[in-house]
């Protein structure tokens, strides 16, 4: 897909995100908006996905296709919107987000059989381990497709992340592309103040990863280019880590760059102000 088209999809996804969070007056818009360009680039451009008649087909095993795991499950709005816009489930279902009897739980889960979701996440630090397991499964199945996982930068404070960081190079899990959303914010404030995990690149390099640093994580062309470069590095005995610099709340001016919009929903006025900044390119649900 052309960059311009991907950007249009991203604008619609951002509309979905603020509307979903507004609709239930809860959820996490900040990180969702910041990772929108990445998820759109993955699902609408980079990932090899099983499709029939131009529509994605979901099965739990995902053999023969690339897989994506969201470890920082609180940014579920962006994943739900991208999955729906891609065609995994009906777009109007986005309106049920975080409401009773919905398949769109606050944090993603396969428990409600939502197409596109393969693991529960929300309790942080587990997703990279899960992705490693799925990558090992692909190797055992002689399946040469790739496994992606997204984590938060605050999430790097979880000890299990470093167990996985040690494991993947040791076992040469080179069909794994991990991405850290480097937005520098977490609930209690700037990550550097709460618990500084400085020099993540040096840390992962020291653990044996192939590390890429991408400064323009909200520039679609840069994100797509980085994802292709990462793919070209796969299969060379090392897992790949992309440190993706993003802006929390990107795309909605008053939400940008502050941890205050980590887990707060906009009111009616704020919603209108946000939507005025985002093109309705695919039609609201």
């Amino acid at each position: 897909m052309e960059i311009e088209q991907l950007e249009k999809v991203a604008a619609q996804v951002r509309r979905d995100i603020v509307r979903m969070v507004h609709g239930c007056q809860s959820g996490h818009p900040g990180g969702s908006l910041g990772c929108t360009d990445l998820l759109v680039a993955l699902y609408f451009e980079r990932m090899k996905l099983k499709e029939e008649d131009g529509k994605p087909v979901f099965d739990m095993d995902g053999n023969g296709e690339d897989l994506f795991f969201l470890s920082n499950g609180h940014i579920s709005p962006v994943l739900y919107s991208v999955l729906a816009r891609k065609g995994y489930f009906p777009v109007p279902e986005l309106a049920t987000f975080r409401k009773l009897n919905s398949r769109l739980q606050g944090h993603p889960t396969p428990h409600e059989h939502l197409e596109g979701i393969r693991i529960a996440s929300g309790s942080l630090g587990q997703g990279m381990s899960v992705a490693i397991g799925a990558a090992l499964s692909k190797k055992l199945n002689k399946d040469d497709s790739l496994v992606y996982v997204l984590m938060g930068d605050g999430e790097q404070q979880e000890g299990q992340v470093w167990e996985a960081a040690m494991f993947a190079p040791h076992h040469k899990v080179d069909n794994l592309i991990a991405i850290i959303d480097l937005n520098g914010q977490q609930i209690d404030g700037p990550t550097a103040k709460v618990m500084d995990n400085r020099d993540l690149g040096a840390k992962y390099e020291a653990f044996g990863w192939e590390v890429m640093e991408v400064e323009e994580g909200n520039d679609m062309a840069s994100v797509v280019k980085a994802l292709y470069e990462a793919k070209s590095k796969a299969g060379h005995a090392k897992p790949i880590m992309i440190l993706l610099r993003t802006g929390m709340g990107y795309g909605v001016d008053f939400m940008m760059g502050s941890h205050k919009w980590h887990g707060v929903a906009p009111n009616d006025e704020q919603l209108a102000a946000a939507l005025a900044q985002l093109e309705e390119s695919m039609g609201d649900y």
Partner: peptide, 24 residues
């Protein structure tokens, strides 16, 4: 078909969950 996880039980459990995806 053996995966040595080292002294990292949390990682082992989540890696196991991931291995089921693909039918292991």
């Amino acid at each position: 078909r053996f995966v040595q996880c080292g002294i990292s039980e949390a990682n082992m459990i989540s890696v196991s969950a991931g291995l089921t995806i693909g039918g292991k």
